[in-house]
Simulated scan of single mutants.
Amino acid sequence: MIGQLPVDEQLDAFREALSHNEVLTEVLTLSASLELPGWYLTAGCLFQTVWNTVTGRGPGEGIKDYDLFYFDSADLSWEAEDAVIQSAKQVFADIPAEVEIRNEARVHLWYEPKFGTPCPAHRSTEDAIDSFAATTCCLGVRLEQPGGRWRVYAPHGLSDVFNLIVRPNPVLAPRTVYEAKASRWLQQWPELTVMPWPTSAPTSRAT
């Protein structure tokens, strides 16, 4: 099983799996052209492409959108973030999927009203990725310029991703968010093993 291979071989297999998703590789290339600070393509489009590869599905099957994170603390206004979003719409106009762009420096401004849990200000895009509801989600990929070298951020490794294990990450998102996501994923990928939320988990990273 790929999830039992040495880390360097898992990285090779990860890149190979992602390369089969032509939408993803095109979004990666176009994202690099935007030159956004600290950017990563992240979350579902990555681990779900691996799940599809492992289970023999089409590489893009069930993927709702492609999350593009960046980090710009110089201007925390919605107007500045929206200017990036509107500009990027032209770049991604021919992509047959939604590319959702967010400035992770702003998340603490809107997170609590939406999820009911306070969110400390992120210090980087990596910090934001670390706070995803499941450790399986904690992935980021970008193309570094010049040369287009792949930079992979995977603080919890890749074994669970290849082994189809969904594991909670109770540092910020509440239990309800984790369980809702896991339930939705199980409907699309019933082969998953979903680990339960720990009974001793903190309610938020702020605690």
Results as ranks from 00 to 15, higher is better:
Ala83Phe: 04
Phe47Ala: 01
Leu41Arg: 07
Pro118Gln: 10
Arg57Val: 00
Val171Lys: 05
Ala201Arg: 03
Thr125Val: 09
Leu5Lys: 14
Glu126Ala: 06
Asn169Val: 02
Gln188Thr: 15
Phe162Trp: 01
Thr42Gly: 05
Lys89Asn: 13
Thr25Ala: 06
Asn52Arg: 08
Gly62Pro: 00
Ser159Ile: 06
Glu104Ala: 02
Glu22Pro: 01
Trp150His: 14
Ser19His: 13
Ala201Tyr: 08
Thr55Phe: 00
Thr42Phe: 00
Ala134Ser: 15
Asp72Thr: 05
Arg123Ser: 14
Leu18Pro: 00
Pro6Tyr: 05
Val141Ser: 07
Phe69Glu: 02
Arg175Asn: 02
Thr117Arg: 14
Glu104Val: 10
Asn21Gly: 09
Ser77Pro: 01
Gln48Ala: 08
His156Pro: 05
Asp12Gly: 12
Thr207Leu: 05
Leu109Tyr: 10
Val84Ala: 05
Asp12Met: 11
Pro118Asn: 13
His108Asp: 08
Ala173His: 15
Ala134Lys: 01
Arg184Gln: 12
Asn52Leu: 04
Asp94Thr: 14
Lys64Ile: 04
Glu179Trp: 03
Val141Gln: 07
Tyr66Thr: 05
Pro6Asp: 11
Val91Phe: 08
Arg205Phe: 14
Gln145His: 14
Leu24Cys: 11
Pro196Ile: 05
Met195Arg: 07
Val141Pro: 00
Val91His: 08
Met195Asn: 04
Thr53Arg: 02
Gly60Leu: 04
Val50Ile: 14
Trp78His: 11
Pro113Ser: 13
Glu16Thr: 15
Phe132Gly: 00
Ala13Trp: 11
Thr49Glu: 02
Ala32Gln: 15
Val91Arg: 12
Glu179Thr: 09
Glu61Ile: 00
Pro118His: 09
Leu24Ser: 06
Asn163Tyr: 01
Val99Ala: 06
Ser31His: 10
Asp160Ala: 08
Asp127Cys: 05
Leu143Asn: 02
Val7Asn: 13
Gln187Ile: 07
Ser33Lys: 12
Phe115Lys: 06
Asp8Phe: 15
Leu46Phe: 10
Gly157Ala: 07
Ala80Trp: 03
Asn103Asp: 12
Tyr178Val: 00
Gly58Cys: 05
Pro120Gln: 08
Leu36Gly: 05
Pro6Trp: 01
Thr207His: 06
Tyr178Thr: 01
Arg149Trp: 01
Ile101Asn: 04
Val152Ser: 05
Arg57Cys: 00
Leu36His: 03
Ser124Arg: 08
Ala105Ser: 12
Pro198Lys: 03
Ala182Gln: 04
Ser87Asn: 09
Val107Gly: 06
Asn103Trp: 10
Trp110Cys: 08
Cys137Phe: 12
